[in-house]
């Protein structure tokens, strides 16, 4: 690999990891340019969208594209790329080491285990239900059904790999679970239980990134993320609407 190729490969790898794991576009752009500048390239061009990253070095025969097919949410990886880029800028590591570290990071699986995510889902659903509805009677059903809904979403998303379908099924499970909890007398209010249980599935990252990308002037990626958030919200809404219509 020549020096130019290594620079481009490193920048593209960093960009790919960041987009795949839920960073906003302007930060990806910034990080790639910083790595290129610290590697000694002054006039690099990057073009980042949420489905692919491109980079070229002006005046030299070096341009490459990296496609991005899957997108998950793992902000720890984004922070780690940021950290590696800072270390490279401070000359603590050299370019081949950076490239190798990025490859290791890309291959690593999620560092937060499933049970911790389930604890997170439980912590989100119960407290938010109390905050929104100002009542504590339905807390335990909300916590249990919210955790169950997130578990269903996680497992389906892992094996089916269709995010919107997983959200739809999770919403169905949450809706029927809430109806069931009220029917056996465990909870008292279906609406409150559903509102709380849905909160862990809210598309917070796409929504926030859609706003930030659009405001930063990335009119390709911002609206695209907005559509992603909208379809997720619609999938959750359809699931709940089916339950409400049936019961």
């Amino acid at each position: 690999m020549t020096a130019d190729e290594l620079i481009i490969a490193t920048c593209l790898k960093a960009g790919k990891i960041m987009v795949e794991n839920g960073s906003e576009i302007s930060r990806v752009d910034d990080t790639m340019m910083r790595i290129a500048q610290n590697a000694g390239v002054i006039s690099a061009n990057t073009y980042v969208t949420i489905t692919g990253v491109m980079m070229s070095i002006q005046g030299r025969n070096a341009t490459q594209i990296m496609a991005i097919n899957k997108r998950t949410i793992d902000l720890e990886k984004v922070a780690q790329v940021n950290q590696l880029s800072r270390e490279f800028a401070a000359s603590a590591i050299d370019l081949p080491t950076l490239h190798q570290r990025l490859n290791t990071l890309d291959a690593a699986s999620r560092s937060f285990p499933l049970w911790l995510q389930l604890v997170g889902a439980a912590l989100v659903s119960g407290p938010l239900m109390i905050m929104f509805r100002q009542e504590i009677v339905n807390t335990w059903p909300t916590v249990v059904i919210g955790t169950l809904g997130y578990l269903v979403f996680y497992l389906l998303n892992r094996y089916l790999k269709i995010k919107f379908l997983s959200e739809l099924v999770a919403a169905l499970i949450i809706g029927f679970g809430a109806e069931w909890a009220v029917q056996i007398g465990w909870g008292t209010n279906v609406n409150d239980i559903i509102i709380g249980s849905l909160m862990p599935l809210v598309p917070g990252v796409p929504l926030t990134n859609a706003v930030r990308d659009t405001l930063a002037g990335n009119f390709v990626s911002g609206p695209a993320r907005g559509v992603e958030a909208l379809i997720s919200a619609a999938a959750l809404g359809f699931g709940i609407a089916v339950v409400i219509t049936l019961s």
Partner: peptide, 15 residues
């Protein structure tokens, strides 16, 4: 509760 909820969402998106 706000603190707890933010902590929970942070765990879900793995900050």
């Amino acid at each position: 509760l706000a603190y707890v909820a933010v902590l929970g969402f942070g765990l879900i998106i793995n900050i």
